[in-house]
Simulated scan of single mutants.
Amino acid sequence: MPIGSNVRYVPANIQKAEWVLADVEYLYKLKANNPIRSVYVPGAWGPGRCTGTLAQGTLPLPDNLIVPDATKYSTPNNPAAFLLPDGKTLVQLNPFTRCTAGGNVYGWRTEDVSIYGDGLRGGHGGSGLSSIGGSIRLGELTGTRPIRHALKINLWANKYLHYSSSNPGYRWPADRADSYAAQQYKGTNPKLVMGTLLAIPPNVTKASLGLQTPAGRKLFHALQNYGAYVVDDSAGDAHYLSVEKGVLEEFRATYGYDFCGTSGTFYNDFMKIFKALHIVDNNEPNNVGGGGTPRVRMAPPIGN
C-alpha cells in the first residue's frame, strides 16, 4: 500500500548510525521432486543451531542448499520464505540454518500463510512480520524500475524503540515485540515501536537531502511513496534494510562499492534518508498508509 494523502506525520528523530547493514533473507520457490527433509526448532540462537530435536514438519529442499551455523561473532536473523510447489503456500523460518548438504533444516516455523493473503505474518522474530513482504529483491536497487512496495528496517531497540506498562513495544501490523522488550527497549518516543511505519514527508526532496548515489535515490522514492516497517532489533549502532540473498553481491558488481559499511557516499546518502524518516502515526488496518489518495499507483496483482 502506498502512503496516502491523509497521512499524519510525527518526527521519528532517527540519528546517524555507525553502520549501514543488511538483514539477508532467503527466498526460494520449491519443486515437488526435491527430497523431503525434516524441519527442527534450532538448538540455540548462537552457535549450535543445527542441534535441535523438536520437529516442525518437512520441506522439499534441494540437497545442495546450505546456510551456515551462527558463530561467536555472527548471529544472523536468516529469515526465510519458501513457496511450496502448490504455488500458494508460504513456509517461513527464522533463523534458517542447514549445516550439511542433504541434512535436516533448522529454524522456528511460523504458521503457514498464502502468498495471496495479507502479507503480514512471517519469520521476523522481533515483530512477527513477513520474511518476504518488504524485502528488497534482486534487481530492485540496480535496475531502472522503481521499487513498488514498502520496505523493512531494523533499528537499535536500546536507543529507539519504546516499551512501557501501557505500551507493550509494538503496534499493528506487528503482533509482538522482542521477549526482552521490557528490559532493553529504551527509546523515549512511545510512537516508535515494532511495527511502526516510517516514511519521508512530501516536502523533503532528493535535492534538499543532497543525495549522490543511484541506490540512495531509489531508496528515497520507495521510502517516500511506500515507507518502511520496523521489523527487528539491530542490537547495535546500525540501521538495516532487509534484502534478498544475492542483492549485496549484485549491488557491489553494479556500483563498485559495498552496500554495508561505515563510510562513503552511499553510507552518507543512507544516513540522510534515515534521518528524514517520520512516523506515520495513523497507519491502521482500515487506514493503511494514512488513508486518502495514494501517492502512487498500486502495484499490479501477483502474476502466475
Rank of each mutant, 00 (worst) to 15 (best):
T254F: 04
Y267D: 00
G292H: 08
V204I: 15
R8S: 13
G289T: 07
G46C: 10
T205L: 10
R217E: 07
D258S: 15
G52Y: 06
N282C: 11
Y163R: 09
L219K: 01
L198R: 02
A22M: 06
G4W: 00
N167V: 13
Q56P: 05
R109W: 03
N33R: 06
D69L: 06
Y257A: 04
D237K: 06
D233S: 10
N268D: 15
S38I: 06
T110K: 10
Q212W: 03
I66H: 06
P301A: 08
S242R: 02
G292T: 10
I279Q: 02
K88W: 05
N304T: 12
S135W: 01
R148C: 10
W156M: 07
Y28S: 12
M298L: 15
R145I: 08
H239D: 04
S263W: 09
L90P: 00
I66N: 08
A70E: 06
Y170H: 13
G264P: 05
Y28C: 14
Q184W: 11
A235W: 06
K88V: 12
D233K: 01
Y229P: 00
P294E: 11
L120W: 14
W19C: 07
S179P: 08
K275T: 13
W172A: 05
S234Y: 03
G57D: 13
R217F: 03
P11Q: 13
L151F: 04
A228H: 04
G133M: 07
T53V: 15
R8D: 08
T89K: 06
P146M: 07
N154H: 14
F220Y: 11
K159D: 13
G264V: 10
V41W: 09
D237L: 12
M298H: 14
P42D: 12
L30W: 10
